[in-house]
């Protein structure tokens, strides 16, 4: 029996699921509603997001949520019966997630 590499992907999926569960609803309230409503000023946003900790947090959340979503999407497709081209689908989905993380890293640190 070949040892599985799923533990790595599953641990990222789990960490991402937990972080998403803890922070995403609050973040949606902030950026989806409070921000367009004008409750938060530009200066405050700028202070929080240009702070080195803020930059790392943005990148960390992005990485974990993308890893979570990619893993869930991949397995849900198999559950729904898309059982062919598994490797290609996995490469495409995880590749998309990795691309998103790289893009975020460029945004945050460039």
């Amino acid at each position: 029996m070949r040892a599985s590499n799923e533990p790595f992907f599953w641990s990222m999926f789990s960490a991402g699921g937990m972080v998403a569960a803890m922070v995403i609803p609050a973040l949606i309230i902030v950026t989806g509603f409070l921000l367009p409503a004008g409750a938060i000023g530009f200066d405050r946003l700028n202070t929080v997001l240009t702070n080195p900790i803020g930059r790392f947090v943005v990148l960390g959340i992005t990485f974990l949520v993308f890893a979570h979503a990619a893993h869930r999407l991949r397995h849900t497709m198999i559950d729904l019966g898309v059982t062919q081209f598994r490797l290609q689908i996995a490469v495409a989905i995880y590749g998309l997630a990795l691309g998103g993380v790289i893009w975020t890293a460029i945004v945050v640190f460039a």
């Binding site: 029996m1 040892a3 599985s4 533990p7």
Partner: peptide, 9 residues
């Protein structure tokens, strides 16, 4: 067996 791709994963 149980930790393989045919097992829990």
């Amino acid at each position: 067996l149980i930790w393989s791709d045919d097992g829990i994963w």
